[in-house]
Design a protein around this nucleic acid. Structure first.
Lengths: 229, 229
DNA sequence: TCTACGGGCGAACAGTGTTCGTGTCAACTG
DNA sequence: CAGTTGACACGAACACTGTTCGCCCGTAGA
């Protein structure tokens, strides 16, 4: 590719080349933050958060890594944008004092499903929490639900914080669960010496139980049950 | 350092050199897993988990990174060893049915303090949980406390899981808290438009409140309060 | 028409985890 | 005591990572 001084001659040549190809102007559509974010999300969805690399995103956009830094300050900022986009996907209900607990659990479940859809992305959620405006939108919605339910502001704020932390930790662990499968871990638990781990081996089946997100909802209900006094 | 074929001549020279120095044989004490772990822990304690690098550990041991792989399979395994060592530092009480809640909270607080002492190491705890024998020792102890308190096995197992996840998430966030300070975040919260974030700005002081680990113990008590029926 | 500017991007820098092959010492064996 | 063996130490390199520098170029404004 001889790129020596682009005169009208080169332009002429590129126009002719454009005629030859199917796509009309063959002009590469410009890189935008949105294109970066959607590309990154697709990458995380298919290959996991560890595969989310500036180079991989750039390659998927058919460019070099340096091009991304005109639109995104950091990889950290990219991570923030991702969890912001995910947060924008959860819908907040109008607070209903009658069923505030169910509403709260539902919001958490939405967030959980968003995180589970993009394996490992919850690690990013644990590194950026309060700044993001989209995250604040969720906490505001949760606060509205709890206050409508008659919960005092202080316990409400702390419960929201705890719930969000739990959702993140739960999804981080869940996306890790794919690596080591259940049966293998169950077998290892059974190998434990009964002398040192009596209760663990006695209830090994209870420990690993929990089809679907039974465990998840159990914890949240436990958290909410103690509220409102 | 001429290292050409170490004959008895070199040995002789090194013995003489040993005489000159204070330390008797000047023989580099061999690398062991323990030395690696303690060095790594010191590194994390002073510079944080991000500074924990195979190269940094090797440099602190005055060697190259390749030397570590004779004793540690992975960096992941090193991380596991670290959280194992930390777990070994928490002492488990003999279950007392009368004060099972306090005992449970105390164990969690011990783990929390261990994690807080080594900033960021909780991220490693979120990536290795159930395999480690030392972690299982803690869950066994917790299970003993809860069962002694009259909690049913299934809720007990789930509550333990939830508590451990919360401790990890809490400490991860806490070690991040050092980067962005409270006042700055509080100021940003006050800038929010009241139209969109009415409850958040109304109770901004409650949100950020919680001297010490008030928030931490609040959440755990909330979790335990719902148990035992 | 000329100029300035901002995005695109190749190349490079400083790190990272990990492996290969070679060295070198210690202890067991004949 | 001599010789071999095997485990450990480690320099160098590989394939990556995030990030920056500086150049090119196309468009917009004067």
């Amino acid at each position: 590719m001889n790129r020596k001084r682009g005169t009208s001659r080169d332009e002429w040549a590129s126009q002719i080349a454009a005629l030859e190809q199917g796509t009309p102007p063959a002009r590469k559509e410009p890189i935008t933050v949105d294109r970066i974010v959607t590309t990154a999300l697709r990458l995380v969805e298919t290959e996991g958060f560890d595969a989310l690399t500036m180079r991989r995103v750039a390659a998927a956009l058919e460019t070099g890594p340096a091009s991304l830094y005109a639109h995104v300050r950091n990889k950290a900022e990219l991570d923030d944008l991702l969890i912001g986009t995910l947060s924008r996907n959860v819908s907040l209900p109008a607070p209903d004092a009658a069923r505030w607990r169910a509403q709260f659990v539902d919001v958490c479940a939405q967030l959980r499903d968003q995180f589970l859809r993009y394996p490992g992305i919850a690690r990013a959620a644990l590194s950026a929490p309060p700044n993001n405006l989209d995250t604040l939108r969720i906490t505001e919605g949760m606060l509205a639900i709890l206050l409508a339910g008659g919960v005092a502001p202080q316990p409400a704020a702390w419960a929201i914080d705890a719930a969000l932390l739990y959702v993140s930790a739960y999804t981080v662990e869940a996306s890790l669960r794919g690596v080591v499968d259940r049966d293998e871990m169950l077998a290892r638990l059974r190998m434990l010496p009964v002398s040192r781990f009596p209760h663990t081996v006695a209830h090994v089946d209870k420990i690993n139980a929990g089809d679907g997100h039974e465990r998840f909802e159990f914890t949240l209900r436990l958290l909410l049950q103690g509220l409102e006094g």
